[in-house]
Computed example of a mutant assay.
Amino acid sequence: MTSLTVPALLTFTISIVVFFLGAGINGLIPQLRRWNIPEAVTGGFLASVATWLAYELFDVSISFQLGARDTLLLYFFTGIGLNARLADLLAGGKALAILLAITLLFLVIQNLIAIGGVHLLGLPEGLTVFVGSASLMGGHGTTIAWAPIVAQRFGIGNALEVGIAVATLGLVLASLVGGPIAGYLIARNKLSGPVGDTLVVGLPDNDKPRDDDLNHVSLLRTILVLNVAILVGVAVWELVDEIGIKMPAFVVCLLVAIVLTNTVPRFLPRLEWPTRTRSLSLISDLSLNIFLSMSLMSMQLWTLGGLGPALILILAVQTLATVVYILLVVFPSMGRTYDAAVLSAGFTGITLGATPTAIANMTAVTKTHGAAPIAFIILPLVSAFFIDLANVVAIGLMTR
Protein backbone atom coordinates (compact mmCIF):
# COMPACT_ATOMS: atom_id res chain seq x y z
CA MET A 1 0.00 0.00 0.00
CA THR A 2 1.34 3.42 -1.03
CA SER A 3 0.16 6.42 1.01
CA LEU A 4 0.06 9.80 -0.71
CA THR A 5 -0.61 13.04 1.20
CA VAL A 6 -1.58 16.06 -0.90
CA PRO A 7 -0.13 19.32 0.55
CA ALA A 8 -2.39 22.17 1.63
CA LEU A 9 -2.01 24.56 -1.32
CA LEU A 10 -2.46 21.79 -3.86
CA THR A 11 -5.50 20.56 -1.91
CA PHE A 12 -7.01 24.04 -2.09
CA THR A 13 -6.30 24.22 -5.83
CA ILE A 14 -7.77 20.79 -6.51
CA SER A 15 -10.91 21.72 -4.58
CA ILE A 16 -11.47 24.65 -6.96
CA VAL A 17 -11.03 22.34 -9.96
CA VAL A 18 -13.45 19.90 -8.33
CA PHE A 19 -16.05 22.65 -7.99
CA PHE A 20 -15.75 23.57 -11.68
CA LEU A 21 -16.02 19.89 -12.56
CA GLY A 22 -19.29 19.72 -10.65
CA ALA A 23 -20.55 22.95 -12.21
CA GLY A 24 -19.80 21.59 -15.69
CA ILE A 25 -21.60 18.31 -15.02
CA ASN A 26 -24.60 20.11 -13.50
CA GLY A 27 -24.71 22.24 -16.63
CA LEU A 28 -24.80 19.14 -18.83
CA ILE A 29 -27.39 17.25 -16.79
CA PRO A 30 -30.61 19.31 -16.32
CA GLN A 31 -31.90 16.91 -13.67
CA LEU A 32 -29.08 17.87 -11.29
CA ARG A 33 -30.03 21.54 -11.58
CA ARG A 34 -33.71 20.76 -11.23
CA TRP A 35 -33.03 18.69 -8.11
CA ASN A 36 -30.92 21.53 -6.64
CA ILE A 37 -27.80 19.38 -6.22
CA PRO A 38 -24.91 21.74 -5.26
CA GLU A 39 -22.04 21.88 -7.75
CA ALA A 40 -19.53 21.12 -4.99
CA VAL A 41 -21.44 17.95 -4.11
CA THR A 42 -21.41 16.70 -7.70
CA GLY A 43 -17.72 17.39 -8.21
CA GLY A 44 -16.65 16.37 -4.72
CA PHE A 45 -18.40 13.01 -4.91
CA LEU A 46 -16.82 12.24 -8.29
CA ALA A 47 -13.39 13.18 -6.90
CA SER A 48 -13.92 10.82 -3.96
CA VAL A 49 -14.81 8.06 -6.41
CA ALA A 50 -11.53 8.78 -8.23
CA THR A 51 -9.52 8.38 -5.00
CA TRP A 52 -11.44 5.16 -4.28
CA LEU A 53 -10.50 3.80 -7.72
CA ALA A 54 -6.86 4.71 -7.03
CA TYR A 55 -7.10 2.71 -3.82
CA GLU A 56 -8.78 -0.31 -5.40
CA LEU A 57 -6.90 -0.45 -8.72
CA PHE A 58 -3.44 0.88 -7.88
CA ASP A 59 -3.23 0.25 -4.12
CA VAL A 60 -2.71 3.98 -3.45
CA SER A 61 -4.28 5.67 -0.42
CA ILE A 62 -4.74 9.40 -1.06
CA SER A 63 -5.31 11.85 1.78
CA PHE A 64 -5.48 15.65 1.78
CA GLN A 65 -4.17 18.32 4.13
CA LEU A 66 -7.34 20.15 5.14
CA GLY A 67 -6.13 23.02 7.31
CA ALA A 68 -7.75 25.63 5.07
CA ARG A 69 -11.11 23.90 5.40
CA ASP A 70 -11.55 24.93 9.05
CA THR A 71 -10.75 28.57 8.20
CA LEU A 72 -13.30 28.55 5.38
CA LEU A 73 -15.90 27.24 7.81
CA LEU A 74 -15.23 30.20 10.11
CA TYR A 75 -15.55 32.64 7.20
CA PHE A 76 -18.82 31.10 6.13
CA PHE A 77 -20.62 31.07 9.47
CA THR A 78 -19.27 34.48 10.45
CA GLY A 79 -20.79 35.76 7.20
CA ILE A 80 -24.12 34.20 8.17
CA GLY A 81 -23.93 36.07 11.49
CA LEU A 82 -23.12 39.39 9.83
CA ASN A 83 -26.32 39.07 7.81
CA ALA A 84 -28.50 38.54 10.90
CA ARG A 85 -30.52 41.66 11.53
CA LEU A 86 -32.29 41.99 14.87
CA ALA A 87 -35.66 42.19 13.14
CA ASP A 88 -35.02 38.84 11.47
CA LEU A 89 -33.93 37.29 14.75
CA LEU A 90 -37.10 38.46 16.46
CA ALA A 91 -39.21 37.25 13.55
CA GLY A 92 -37.43 33.91 13.63
CA GLY A 93 -37.82 33.31 17.36
CA LYS A 94 -40.98 31.21 17.03
CA ALA A 95 -39.59 29.36 14.03
CA LEU A 96 -36.39 28.62 15.94
CA ALA A 97 -38.36 27.13 18.85
CA ILE A 98 -40.49 24.98 16.52
CA LEU A 99 -37.50 23.74 14.52
CA LEU A 100 -35.65 22.89 17.73
CA ALA A 101 -38.63 20.96 19.09
CA ILE A 102 -39.22 18.88 15.97
CA THR A 103 -35.48 18.21 15.59
CA LEU A 104 -35.24 16.99 19.18
CA LEU A 105 -38.21 14.72 18.53
CA PHE A 106 -36.52 13.28 15.46
CA LEU A 107 -33.32 12.70 17.44
CA VAL A 108 -35.36 10.35 19.63
CA ILE A 109 -36.96 8.68 16.59
CA GLN A 110 -33.57 8.23 14.92
CA ASN A 111 -32.12 6.51 17.97
CA LEU A 112 -35.21 4.30 18.36
CA ILE A 113 -34.74 3.16 14.75
CA ALA A 114 -31.08 2.45 15.54
CA ILE A 115 -31.97 0.44 18.66
CA GLY A 116 -34.65 -1.53 16.83
CA GLY A 117 -32.45 -2.19 13.80
CA VAL A 118 -29.48 -3.39 15.83
CA HIS A 119 -31.74 -5.67 17.89
CA LEU A 120 -33.69 -7.15 14.96
CA LEU A 121 -30.62 -7.72 12.80
CA GLY A 122 -28.50 -9.18 15.58
CA LEU A 123 -25.72 -6.58 15.41
CA PRO A 124 -23.40 -5.80 18.35
CA GLU A 125 -25.17 -3.57 20.84
CA GLY A 126 -22.42 -0.94 20.76
CA LEU A 127 -23.12 -0.18 17.10
CA THR A 128 -26.44 1.41 18.10
CA VAL A 129 -24.62 4.68 18.72
CA PHE A 130 -23.12 4.75 15.25
CA VAL A 131 -26.27 3.98 13.27
CA GLY A 132 -28.15 6.60 15.27
CA SER A 133 -27.61 10.22 16.20
CA ALA A 134 -23.89 10.00 17.04
CA SER A 135 -22.77 9.51 13.45
CA LEU A 136 -25.81 10.86 11.58
CA MET A 137 -26.62 14.02 13.54
CA GLY A 138 -23.20 14.35 15.12
CA GLY A 139 -21.14 13.68 12.01
CA HIS A 140 -17.46 12.80 11.86
CA GLY A 141 -16.41 14.95 14.82
CA THR A 142 -18.82 13.36 17.28
CA THR A 143 -18.02 9.91 15.91
CA ILE A 144 -14.29 10.35 16.42
CA ALA A 145 -14.83 11.68 19.95
CA TRP A 146 -17.02 8.78 21.09
CA ALA A 147 -15.42 5.85 19.21
CA PRO A 148 -12.77 5.06 21.88
CA ILE A 149 -15.41 5.04 24.61
CA VAL A 150 -17.68 2.70 22.62
CA ALA A 151 -14.77 0.43 21.68
CA GLN A 152 -13.76 0.07 25.32
CA ARG A 153 -17.28 -0.19 26.73
CA PHE A 154 -18.58 -2.80 24.24
CA GLY A 155 -15.36 -4.40 23.02
CA ILE A 156 -15.85 -3.38 19.38
CA GLY A 157 -12.43 -3.05 17.78
CA ASN A 158 -13.61 -1.41 14.56
CA ALA A 159 -16.00 1.06 16.20
CA LEU A 160 -14.21 4.06 14.70
CA GLU A 161 -14.18 2.61 11.17
CA VAL A 162 -17.90 1.76 11.29
CA GLY A 163 -18.83 5.16 12.71
CA ILE A 164 -16.79 7.05 10.11
CA ALA A 165 -18.30 4.95 7.32
CA VAL A 166 -21.85 5.67 8.50
CA ALA A 167 -21.14 9.39 8.89
CA THR A 168 -19.62 9.48 5.40
CA LEU A 169 -22.54 7.72 3.77
CA GLY A 170 -24.96 9.95 5.68
CA LEU A 171 -23.18 13.02 4.34
CA VAL A 172 -23.64 11.78 0.77
CA LEU A 173 -27.30 10.90 1.32
CA ALA A 174 -28.03 14.28 2.87
CA SER A 175 -26.47 16.03 -0.12
CA LEU A 176 -28.52 14.00 -2.58
CA VAL A 177 -32.02 14.11 -1.05
CA GLY A 178 -32.24 17.66 0.36
CA GLY A 179 -32.56 19.57 -2.91
CA PRO A 180 -35.13 17.26 -4.53
CA ILE A 181 -37.34 17.39 -1.41
CA ALA A 182 -37.38 21.20 -1.47
CA GLY A 183 -37.97 21.26 -5.23
CA TYR A 184 -40.94 18.93 -4.82
CA LEU A 185 -42.47 20.99 -2.02
CA ILE A 186 -41.97 24.28 -3.89
CA ALA A 187 -43.52 22.93 -7.09
CA ARG A 188 -46.40 21.15 -5.40
CA ASN A 189 -47.38 24.14 -3.26
CA LYS A 190 -46.56 26.79 -5.92
CA LEU A 191 -44.12 28.60 -3.62
CA SER A 192 -41.49 31.21 -4.45
CA GLY A 193 -39.04 33.42 -2.61
CA PRO A 194 -39.18 37.22 -2.29
CA VAL A 195 -38.35 39.18 -5.42
CA GLY A 196 -35.28 41.41 -5.30
CA ASP A 197 -33.90 40.37 -1.90
CA THR A 198 -30.14 39.80 -1.70
CA LEU A 199 -29.27 36.18 -1.03
CA VAL A 200 -27.61 35.32 2.27
CA VAL A 201 -25.23 33.01 0.42
CA GLY A 202 -24.24 33.40 -3.22
CA LEU A 203 -25.69 35.27 -6.16
CA PRO A 204 -28.84 34.12 -7.97
CA ASP A 205 -28.51 31.91 -11.03
CA ASN A 206 -30.13 34.59 -13.20
CA ASP A 207 -27.91 37.38 -11.84
CA LYS A 208 -26.97 40.02 -14.40
CA PRO A 209 -23.90 42.28 -14.24
CA ARG A 210 -24.77 45.73 -12.91
CA ASP A 211 -23.14 48.76 -11.35
CA ASP A 212 -23.58 48.21 -7.63
CA ASP A 213 -21.64 47.36 -4.47
CA LEU A 214 -19.69 44.43 -5.93
CA ASN A 215 -16.14 45.64 -6.61
CA HIS A 216 -12.63 45.23 -5.24
CA VAL A 217 -13.18 47.88 -2.54
CA SER A 218 -16.38 46.29 -1.24
CA LEU A 219 -14.77 42.84 -1.27
CA LEU A 220 -11.73 44.03 0.72
CA ARG A 221 -13.96 45.92 3.15
CA THR A 222 -16.06 42.81 3.68
CA ILE A 223 -13.01 40.60 4.21
CA LEU A 224 -11.68 43.10 6.78
CA VAL A 225 -14.93 43.01 8.75
CA LEU A 226 -15.02 39.22 8.53
CA ASN A 227 -11.45 38.94 9.78
CA VAL A 228 -12.11 41.23 12.74
CA ALA A 229 -15.26 39.31 13.64
CA ILE A 230 -13.42 35.98 13.39
CA LEU A 231 -10.54 37.23 15.55
CA VAL A 232 -13.00 38.38 18.23
CA GLY A 233 -14.99 35.15 17.89
CA VAL A 234 -11.96 32.91 18.29
CA ALA A 235 -10.83 34.90 21.34
CA VAL A 236 -14.29 34.48 22.92
CA TRP A 237 -14.28 30.78 21.99
CA GLU A 238 -10.94 30.24 23.74
CA LEU A 239 -12.30 32.03 26.80
CA VAL A 240 -15.50 30.00 27.06
CA ASP A 241 -13.55 26.81 26.38
CA GLU A 242 -11.25 27.56 29.33
CA ILE A 243 -14.21 27.90 31.68
CA GLY A 244 -15.60 24.54 30.56
CA ILE A 245 -18.27 25.51 28.02
CA LYS A 246 -17.72 23.27 24.99
CA MET A 247 -19.03 24.32 21.61
CA PRO A 248 -17.63 24.52 18.07
CA ALA A 249 -15.57 27.61 17.24
CA PHE A 250 -17.77 28.45 14.26
CA VAL A 251 -20.85 28.68 16.51
CA VAL A 252 -19.13 31.27 18.71
CA CYS A 253 -18.02 33.22 15.63
CA LEU A 254 -21.61 33.13 14.37
CA LEU A 255 -22.93 34.50 17.66
CA VAL A 256 -20.23 37.19 17.90
CA ALA A 257 -20.98 38.29 14.34
CA ILE A 258 -24.69 38.58 15.19
CA VAL A 259 -23.85 40.84 18.13
CA LEU A 260 -21.46 42.98 16.07
CA THR A 261 -23.83 43.43 13.15
CA ASN A 262 -26.62 44.60 15.45
CA THR A 263 -24.48 47.02 17.50
CA VAL A 264 -21.58 48.48 15.49
CA PRO A 265 -23.75 50.11 12.77
CA ARG A 266 -25.88 51.76 15.47
CA PHE A 267 -22.89 53.34 17.19
CA LEU A 268 -21.01 54.08 13.95
CA PRO A 269 -23.76 54.87 11.44
CA ARG A 270 -21.32 56.28 8.87
CA LEU A 271 -19.30 53.08 8.80
CA GLU A 272 -20.10 51.01 5.70
CA TRP A 273 -21.18 47.60 6.98
CA PRO A 274 -21.48 44.51 4.77
CA THR A 275 -24.86 43.20 5.96
CA ARG A 276 -26.99 42.00 3.01
CA THR A 277 -24.46 43.10 0.43
CA ARG A 278 -23.65 41.11 -2.68
CA SER A 279 -19.98 41.08 -1.69
CA LEU A 280 -20.74 39.26 1.59
CA SER A 281 -23.05 36.84 -0.22
CA LEU A 282 -20.32 36.10 -2.76
CA ILE A 283 -17.60 35.52 -0.14
CA SER A 284 -19.93 33.27 1.86
CA ASP A 285 -20.72 31.27 -1.25
CA LEU A 286 -17.06 30.86 -2.16
CA SER A 287 -16.19 29.73 1.36
CA LEU A 288 -19.02 27.20 1.48
CA ASN A 289 -18.34 25.72 -1.95
CA ILE A 290 -14.62 25.24 -1.38
CA PHE A 291 -15.29 23.84 2.11
CA LEU A 292 -17.78 21.36 0.72
CA SER A 293 -15.54 20.41 -2.21
CA MET A 294 -12.69 19.68 0.21
CA SER A 295 -14.94 17.69 2.54
CA LEU A 296 -16.42 15.47 -0.15
CA MET A 297 -13.29 14.91 -2.23
CA SER A 298 -11.41 13.85 0.92
CA MET A 299 -13.92 11.13 1.79
CA GLN A 300 -12.25 7.73 1.89
CA LEU A 301 -14.99 5.64 0.33
CA TRP A 302 -13.04 2.42 0.77
CA THR A 303 -13.91 2.56 4.47
CA LEU A 304 -17.50 1.81 3.43
CA GLY A 305 -16.39 -1.63 2.28
CA GLY A 306 -16.70 -2.98 5.82
CA LEU A 307 -20.37 -2.12 6.02
CA GLY A 308 -22.50 -5.22 5.79
CA PRO A 309 -25.99 -5.40 4.31
CA ALA A 310 -27.50 -5.04 7.78
CA LEU A 311 -25.94 -1.62 8.37
CA ILE A 312 -26.87 -0.45 4.88
CA LEU A 313 -30.45 -1.54 5.52
CA ILE A 314 -30.59 0.52 8.73
CA LEU A 315 -29.26 3.57 6.89
CA ALA A 316 -31.89 3.10 4.19
CA VAL A 317 -34.59 3.07 6.87
CA GLN A 318 -33.07 6.17 8.50
CA THR A 319 -33.13 8.01 5.18
CA LEU A 320 -36.71 6.99 4.45
CA ALA A 321 -37.74 8.07 7.96
CA THR A 322 -36.10 11.46 7.39
CA VAL A 323 -37.95 12.04 4.12
CA VAL A 324 -41.31 11.00 5.58
CA TYR A 325 -40.73 13.14 8.67
CA ILE A 326 -39.92 16.19 6.54
CA LEU A 327 -43.06 15.77 4.43
CA LEU A 328 -45.43 15.02 7.32
CA VAL A 329 -43.94 17.01 10.21
CA VAL A 330 -41.21 19.52 9.31
CA PHE A 331 -42.83 21.27 6.35
CA PRO A 332 -46.32 21.53 7.95
CA SER A 333 -44.91 22.55 11.35
CA MET A 334 -42.83 25.33 9.83
CA GLY A 335 -45.93 26.79 8.16
CA ARG A 336 -45.94 25.29 4.64
CA THR A 337 -44.23 28.46 3.38
CA TYR A 338 -41.29 29.00 1.05
CA ASP A 339 -38.98 29.30 4.08
CA ALA A 340 -40.38 25.98 5.31
CA ALA A 341 -39.44 24.34 2.00
CA VAL A 342 -35.89 25.76 2.23
CA LEU A 343 -35.59 24.52 5.82
CA SER A 344 -36.81 21.12 4.63
CA ALA A 345 -33.80 20.93 2.33
CA GLY A 346 -31.56 21.84 5.25
CA PHE A 347 -33.20 19.34 7.60
CA THR A 348 -31.58 16.46 5.72
CA GLY A 349 -28.21 17.97 6.61
CA ILE A 350 -29.17 18.23 10.27
CA THR A 351 -30.32 14.64 10.51
CA LEU A 352 -28.13 12.72 8.05
CA GLY A 353 -25.07 14.82 7.27
CA ALA A 354 -23.67 17.98 8.81
CA THR A 355 -24.48 21.67 9.14
CA PRO A 356 -22.44 22.75 6.07
CA THR A 357 -24.30 20.14 4.02
CA ALA A 358 -27.59 21.57 5.24
CA ILE A 359 -26.51 25.10 4.29
CA ALA A 360 -25.28 23.92 0.89
CA ASN A 361 -28.67 22.33 0.19
CA MET A 362 -30.48 25.52 1.17
CA THR A 363 -28.08 27.65 -0.87
CA ALA A 364 -28.75 25.60 -4.00
CA VAL A 365 -32.49 26.08 -3.51
CA THR A 366 -32.35 29.84 -2.85
CA LYS A 367 -30.13 30.51 -5.85
CA THR A 368 -32.93 29.23 -8.04
CA HIS A 369 -36.05 30.27 -6.15
CA GLY A 370 -35.12 33.31 -4.02
CA ALA A 371 -33.77 34.41 -0.64
CA ALA A 372 -34.72 32.91 2.73
CA PRO A 373 -32.65 34.83 5.32
CA ILE A 374 -34.40 33.55 8.46
CA ALA A 375 -33.73 29.94 7.47
CA PHE A 376 -29.98 30.61 7.30
CA ILE A 377 -30.00 32.03 10.83
CA ILE A 378 -32.10 29.55 12.77
CA LEU A 379 -30.86 26.31 11.22
CA PRO A 380 -27.17 26.66 12.25
CA LEU A 381 -28.20 27.60 15.79
CA VAL A 382 -30.35 24.47 16.06
CA SER A 383 -28.01 22.02 14.35
CA ALA A 384 -24.64 23.21 15.61
CA PHE A 385 -25.49 24.25 19.15
CA PHE A 386 -28.72 22.96 20.73
CA ILE A 387 -28.69 19.57 19.01
CA ASP A 388 -25.05 18.97 19.92
CA LEU A 389 -25.99 19.35 23.59
CA ALA A 390 -28.98 17.01 23.26
CA ASN A 391 -26.89 14.51 21.32
CA VAL A 392 -24.37 14.27 24.14
CA VAL A 393 -27.18 13.28 26.51
CA ALA A 394 -28.60 10.71 24.07
CA ILE A 395 -25.20 9.13 23.36
CA GLY A 396 -24.43 9.02 27.07
CA LEU A 397 -27.61 7.08 27.73
CA MET A 398 -26.87 4.58 24.94
CA THR A 399 -23.32 3.92 26.15
CA ARG A 400 -24.10 3.40 29.83
Rank of each mutant, 00 (worst) to 15 (best):
A310K: 12
S295P: 03
R266H: 11
L255M: 13
T168P: 05
L226H: 02
I164G: 02
V234W: 02
T263F: 05
V195E: 14
N189W: 12
G306C: 11
L203R: 05
L219Y: 05
P274A: 07
I283F: 01
T277C: 07
A229K: 00
S298E: 06
S284F: 03
F291L: 15
L288W: 02
L260Y: 00
P248W: 05
A257V: 04
I245D: 06
L199M: 06
I258H: 02
T277S: 14
P194S: 11
D207Q: 15
A182Q: 06
C253P: 00
L226P: 00
V232I: 14
P209I: 13
D207R: 14
P248V: 03
G163Q: 08
D241I: 10
I258M: 11
I283S: 00
R210E: 14
G305D: 13
S192D: 10
M299A: 14
A310V: 08
T198W: 09
F250I: 04
L176S: 10
N189M: 12
V259Y: 03
L296V: 05
L292V: 06
G202E: 03
V256K: 00
L226C: 01
A167S: 09
R266P: 05
D211C: 12
R270L: 12
A167D: 01
V234E: 02
I258A: 01
E242H: 13
L185E: 06
V240P: 02
D212E: 14
R210A: 15
V201Q: 03
H216S: 14
A187W: 08
I164N: 04
P209H: 13
W273Y: 09
M299R: 07
S175A: 15
L191M: 08
V225N: 01
D207C: 10
L220E: 08
L185I: 10
V225A: 04
N262F: 05
L199N: 05
N227C: 10
G196S: 09
I186P: 01
V264C: 07
G306S: 12
G305Q: 15
A257F: 02
S281M: 03
K190S: 13
V217F: 12
V252C: 01
E238H: 15
L191R: 06
T263V: 10
A229R: 01
D241W: 11
W302T: 09
I283W: 00
I290F: 04
R266T: 10
L280E: 00
L231N: 07
S295I: 09
V195W: 07
R266Q: 12
F267W: 12
A165M: 09
P265Y: 02
G306L: 11
H216D: 13
G179L: 07
A174Q: 04
L271H: 05
D197C: 08
K246H: 10
P269Q: 07
G233Q: 02
S295M: 11
G305P: 06
P209Y: 12
G308P: 06
R266K: 14
V234M: 06
S298A: 14
G163R: 00
A249H: 09
I283Y: 00
G193H: 03
A229I: 01
I164R: 01
S192H: 15
A235E: 10
V225L: 05
L185D: 01
T222V: 03
D207V: 13
L292C: 09
S192G: 09
V234Y: 02
N206V: 11
L282C: 07
V162E: 05
R278V: 01
A257L: 03
L296P: 01
